[in-house]
């Protein structure tokens, strides 16, 4: 998969910096999650003492992993999509369509963030049973996803690049 998913480094400076930042955060989070799952299973298997709090942390952070991962995808112009029809359009029309797509994506993510924000206000203070992890952690992951993708769309509007 290494060769398959990853394309070349982008040339745009903003895009490159944004990618480096988000990738580092995602890698750190993923390493932490793997370590937590391993610690839980080692604790349970070797010492008959599972660490149930790790499950609460993992579940709460999954949404953040989703948000960061899809942001990387967005910054690489790699979001899953279907080009069967758009590939047939002429180059100038494709360029214009791309602007419309980015604007539409921005509007959609703004609406998602708005609803997630309201939801955060109502239920963000609810706490998980074992360690009292506030629900604002996973909810803000949705906002993170919306913000990350918005950033990707904005960068692609200002400095479009094919990867």
């Amino acid at each position: 998969m290494t060769e398959a998913v990853i394309a070349d480094r982008p040339s745009g400076r903003v895009r490159r910096h944004a990618l480096a930042l988000v990738e580092t955060a995602a890698v750190a989070l993923l390493v932490a999650l793997v370590a937590l799952v391993l610690a839980n299973s080692i604790g349970r298997y070797l010492f008959a003492r599972p660490l149930p709090w790790t499950e609460e942390v993992v579940v709460a952070l999954l949404m953040w992993l989703g948000g960061l991962g899809i942001t990387i995808s967005g910054l690489r112009n790699g979001l899953i999509s279907c080009a069967i029809w758009t590939a047939r359009l002429s180059a100038p029309i494709q360029r214009r369509l791309r602007i419309v797509q980015n604007l539409f994506g921005l509007a959609t993510m703004a609406a998602l963030a708005w609803f997630a924000w309201q939801y955060l206000g109502l239920f963000g203070g609810d706490r998980s049973p074992l360690i009292g992890m506030p629900k604002s952690v996973p909810i803000s992951g949705i906002i993170g996803c919306a913000a990350g993708l918005s950033l990707a769309f904005v960068i692609d509007l200002i400095a479009p690049e094919d990867l």
Binding site: M1, T2, V5, I6, E23, A26, V27, L29, L30, V31, L62, M63, L65, G66, G67, L68, G69, I70, T71, I72, S73, R76, G78, L79, I80
Partner: peptide, 12 residues
């Protein structure tokens, strides 16, 4: 790790 984060992010 980055590849895994990308694919996981999309699927999640």
């Amino acid at each position: 790790l980055v590849d895994s984060a990308i694919l996981t992010g999309e699927v999640l």
